[in-house]
Simulated assay, not measured.
Amino acid sequence: MPLNLRSLFWLAFFGIVLWAWWVMFSMATGPMMMPSQYMSLFLMWSIMMAAMMGPTFVPTMRAYEDLITSADGSRSGSLGVVLGFFAVWVGFAAIIAFAQNTLVGFGLLNAMGASVSTALSSGLLIAAGIYQFTTLKGRCLAHCRSPMMQFIAHWRPGFSGGLRMRLHHGAYCVACCWGLMVIGFVGGTMDLLWMGGATLMMTLEKLPDIGRWFTKPLGVALIFWGVTVAAF
């Protein structure tokens, strides 16, 4: 594979991620108000998914890059891998945008997407913390931490193959990370500290050597935070 194509691919990938972070930063720090209509919320969450999940996807893309030279992977396949992954997260964006719109309608979130209910804030934090200890979380993390093994086990060549494989991987990724996404409602979905912190936590969790020492302590911290919110 020509080096220039590889370089252009990675430049485009990181360019999209940086653009998504710039949009989120502009919305969080500028005079722009939080969108109130569902389609606007959906667009906002879709861009946020690119910003937050893009960095967590780098090890997976590096694994596929290795297969381009050592197996029958292709550049069109890598494009399918990226599109399949983000297609699943755009689907999640549709769901969480609907949830935000509904919670605002019930008066549980303010205009900035932050909870005004102690019960909701505490419940989200405790639920996210408990999920860190579940078997499902463990299975999804094991999947996300071994992208090369998953490619080999479910290998499909070409663009359509990459798309199918990453739709499968994306579903595991959503099941792995949804808890850390929904706690954005605690402090507000435009909170850059939450966005950066959640991105870092999701990235660390997926690293095999670090994540296994990180997942359960994070669960303990979330539960403690939730109980503290409920108590005080």
Rank of each mutant, 00 (worst) to 15 (best):
M33V: 10
I152T: 05
F185I: 05
F106V: 14
G158H: 05
F85K: 02
S36F: 01
M202G: 00
T56S: 15
W155K: 01
T60K: 04
I152F: 03
C140A: 15
V104Q: 11
T102H: 13
C176R: 03
R62N: 08
L180Q: 01
E65S: 03
L192N: 04
P217E: 08
L193H: 08
L5E: 15
Q132V: 08
I223L: 12
V227C: 12
A153G: 08
Q132T: 10
A127Q: 07
V186E: 03
G107P: 09
V220Q: 10
G107C: 13
M148Y: 06
T69L: 00
S76W: 00
M112C: 01
G162A: 03
G91S: 03
G107V: 13
A128M: 11
S121D: 05
P2E: 11
G113A: 06
M39A: 13
A231P: 11
F92M: 08
G162F: 02
G138F: 10
R75E: 05
A28Y: 09
F42D: 06
F14Y: 11
S78I: 14
I47V: 15
L124F: 02
L193N: 11
A111F: 13
G123T: 13
L204V: 15
W213L: 14
G113R: 09
M32T: 09
M32F: 08
I223R: 06
D191P: 00
R75W: 01
A119Q: 15
R145S: 10
G211M: 12
G188N: 07
G226L: 04
L204G: 05
L120A: 04
H168S: 10
M1E: 12
L163N: 04
L109N: 09
S78L: 15
L5A: 13
M48C: 09
V17C: 02
L103I: 07
S117I: 09
G123K: 09
M149D: 10
A20W: 10
C144P: 14
I126T: 09
S40N: 09
V58K: 10
L167R: 06
L79K: 04
A93K: 00
L109P: 00
M202S: 10
Y172T: 05
T189D: 05
M52H: 08
T203V: 12
V90M: 00
L109Y: 05
M44D: 01
S74G: 06
S70N: 11
I130L: 14
R75C: 02
L11I: 15
D66C: 04
M27A: 14
P147E: 00
V186H: 07
G187T: 12
L11S: 14
A99C: 14
S115C: 13
G179W: 09
E65L: 02
L108H: 07
L163F: 14
N110F: 05
M61G: 11
G123F: 11
M53N: 06
F85W: 06
F25H: 13
Y172R: 10
S115P: 07
M61K: 11
W45V: 02
L125A: 15
Q150Y: 00
A119S: 15
R6W: 05
D209C: 14
A63F: 06
V58T: 11
R62G: 00
A93V: 03
V227Y: 04
P2F: 01
P147C: 10
L136H: 09
M165D: 05
M53E: 04
F13R: 12
Y131L: 06
F159K: 03
A175F: 15
L193A: 13
